[in-house]
Simulated assay, not measured.
Amino acid sequence: MKRLLRTMVMGSLILSLLLVGCDSGGNSTNGSNGAANTPQVKPTELIISAAASLKSSMGEVQTLYEGKNTQVKLIINYGSSGTLQQQIEQGAPADLFISAGKSQVDALLEKNLMVKESVVNLLGNELVLVVGADNTEVKSIQDLSKDGVVKIGIGTPESVPAGKYAKEAFTSIKLWDSLQPKFVMAKDVTQVLNYVETGNVEAGVVYKSDAQGSTKARVVESFPADSHKPIIYPAGIVSATTHKAEAEAFLTYLQSSEAQDIFTKYGFKIAGK
C-alpha cells in the first residue's frame, strides 16, 4: 500500500512539474517574441457620406486607398444628397460629405456643420434621358410627350439634386407642366435607373455616370447644358469629425490624378473642365 501511495504521489508531482514547465515555456516564448504580445492597432474608421451616384466609382477608390493606407478603414454611407444633409444636421456620424449638389453643402455651411476652407468642387456630371435597352419608342426628349409614354422616373426635386436639375431642364425646354402627371418620384438616381431597368417606367432622368454602368438601360439624349445649372459635386470635411487629419488626407487623395482617372472612367467630369 505504501509503495502504491508513493508511486501515485511521485506521478502527481512529475505531472505538476511538467505542467509548470509548459506554462513557463509558453511565457518565455511570448516574452522573447514581442510581436506575439503586441496588440493589433485598429484602423481609424473614416465615415464618408456620399451621393448615391458615386457608389460604383467610390467602391474602386475605396479599394485602392485602403490598400495603400492600411491604418484607415473607409465606411461609406450612400444616399440622396438631401437625405445625407439631413442626417448630418441631426448629428449622424460623418467625417466627409460628397454631395451631388451645391445647395446641400451650402445649407450645412450656413449652420457651421462643415469646415468652410475644406470645401472643394470635386466632380462634374451630365444629365441624360435613359430608356430600357429594348425600348425603341422613345428616341428623343420630345418623345416623352407621346401617349405611349405613361411614366417617367425622376429624383424628387426637393431632396435629390438630379431631380432638381431635371425640373430645371424640363422647365427650360417648356415640358415640365405637360409632363408633370407622368413623373414618378424616386428617392435617388439609383432608384430612377432601377425603375427604367425593370420596366416600371418608360424613361428616366439620371446622370451620365449612372447610365454608363448599366447594361439594361441606354442613353437616348443629353439635356442641353444651358437648360439647368452646372452639375457640381462639392466635397468637404464635416465639422464634427474627430479624425480631421485622416479626412484631409482622403479628400486630398480624391483630387489626385489616380482617383480622378477612376471617376472619369465611370462617366464623371473633372470639375472646372
Rank of each mutant, 00 (worst) to 15 (best):
Q104Y: 06
Q104W: 09
V105I: 13
V105H: 01
V105G: 00
A107G: 02
L108V: 11
L108N: 03
L108Y: 03
L108M: 09
L109C: 00
E110D: 13
L113E: 08
V115K: 13
V115D: 09
V115P: 07
K116Q: 11
K116L: 07
E117T: 08
E117N: 08
S118R: 01
V119L: 03
V120R: 14
L122Y: 08
L122V: 02
N125I: 02
E126H: 11
L127K: 02
L129M: 04
G132C: 07
G132V: 07
D134Q: 13
D134K: 14
N135E: 14
N135Q: 12
T136S: 12
E137V: 15
V138E: 12
V138Y: 11
V138H: 12
K139Q: 15
S140P: 09
D143R: 02
L144V: 07
S145L: 09
G148I: 04
G148M: 09
K151N: 14
K151H: 10
I152N: 04
I152K: 09
I152A: 05
G153D: 06
I154N: 01
I154C: 01
G155H: 06
G155Q: 05
T156N: 15
P157C: 10
E158K: 11
V160S: 07
P161D: 01
A162F: 08
A162E: 10
A162N: 11
A162Y: 10
G163V: 04
G163S: 05
G163T: 05
G163C: 05
G163D: 05
K164L: 13
Y165L: 11
Y165I: 00
Y165E: 06
A166H: 10
A169W: 06
A169S: 12
F170V: 03
T171E: 11
T171C: 05
S172V: 07
I173C: 01
L175T: 00
W176F: 14
W176Q: 10
D177N: 09
S178E: 13
L179T: 01
K182R: 08
V184Y: 10
A186G: 12
A186T: 04
D188F: 04
Q191K: 14
Q191W: 11
N194C: 03
Y195V: 08
V196P: 08
V196A: 05
T198R: 15
G199F: 10
N200F: 14
V201M: 05
E202N: 13
E202Y: 10
G204F: 07
V205I: 15
V206P: 07
K208V: 03
A211V: 05
Q212W: 06
S214K: 02
S214G: 11
T215M: 13
K216W: 03
K216C: 03
A217H: 05
A217K: 09
R218D: 07
R218G: 13
V219G: 08
V219H: 09
S222L: 08
F223K: 09
A225M: 04
D226S: 05
S227G: 11
H228A: 01
H228P: 00
K229C: 03
K229A: 15
P230N: 04
P230Q: 09
I231R: 02
I232F: 04
